Computed example of a mutant assay.
Amino acid sequence: MEITSFTTPLGIATIMGDENGVSKISIADEGVESGEIPVILQEAVTQIKEYFEGNRTHFNFKRNPQGTDFQQKVWQALIEIPYGQTISYLDLSKKLGDVKAIRAVASANGKNPLWIVVPCHRVIGTDGSLTGYAGGLWRKKWLLEHENPTTQQSLF
């Protein structure tokens, strides 16, 4: 398993993976940047940096998140949420075919091992509230604003 850490606008991101793909991406308030980026993780680092620069709206590097079949199903549904859009936990549960599974969906969402790449930050409360986010609600708000910036209309 290879590992690397680098600075993002939201803290220090750490990526872990091997020849099967990236298995974990996390964020922390503190940490130390790695020196050299392992070859196997270079594409993931490049794409995440492009995302923060505003030059990438989806990720296509090899991924290998570990989880149950249900978690994998939820994470796949998260990947399908378009950039700049949100969905409620209730609507996500409906999309997955079981409105009663809302708590299980929320739990799987919270166990997402691929920060930003599997965009769990795009899931909000039915009332539009920014509910629950493992990285902190301030990061969720930042990510949603990054993906959907408000533009000032020109008066002239």
Rank of each mutant, 00 (worst) to 15 (best):
P113R: 10
T86W: 06
A108D: 02
E145Q: 11
R122N: 06
F70G: 03
A77C: 04
Q72S: 12
V74H: 01
L155D: 12
V32R: 13
Y89F: 15
I37Q: 02
I27G: 00
F156Y: 14
I12A: 03
F156D: 05
V123G: 01
L90F: 15
A44S: 06
V32L: 13
L92V: 10
T150E: 11
N60P: 02
W115R: 03
A13M: 13
Q42P: 00
G54P: 00
V105W: 06
W142V: 04
V45R: 11
D29W: 12
S154E: 08
I81Y: 11
I81E: 01
N64Y: 14
Y89S: 06
A106D: 00
Q71G: 02
I81H: 07
D29F: 09
M16C: 14
P113D: 07
N109S: 11
Q153K: 15
N60F: 15
K94Q: 09
K95W: 12
G17D: 03
L155K: 15
D18S: 11
T14K: 05
A44R: 01
E36D: 09
L114M: 14
Y83K: 06
V118E: 09
E145S: 12
K141A: 13
N20L: 14
K24V: 13
A108V: 11
D18C: 07
A44V: 08
T14E: 07
L155C: 12
V99Y: 14
G84I: 14
G97I: 08
G84R: 12
E43C: 08
T57E: 04
V117Y: 08
Q85A: 11
E2M: 10
V45C: 01
L10H: 06
F52Y: 15
A106C: 06
G67E: 01
R122I: 11
K62N: 06
M16A: 13
V105Q: 02
K49W: 09
I3G: 02
D29G: 14
K100G: 03
I87G: 00
V99T: 15
W142Q: 00
S26I: 11
L137D: 04
I40S: 06
A101L: 12
K94V: 15
Y133L: 09
K140N: 01
P38I: 15
K49P: 00
A101T: 07
D98G: 05
S154M: 14
A101I: 13
H58C: 11
P149C: 02
H146V: 09
N148Q: 09
K94W: 11
A108I: 08
L92T: 08
V32G: 02
I124G: 04
F61E: 03
M16S: 14
S5D: 04
D127H: 07
W115M: 08
S129E: 10
P119D: 07
T7W: 14
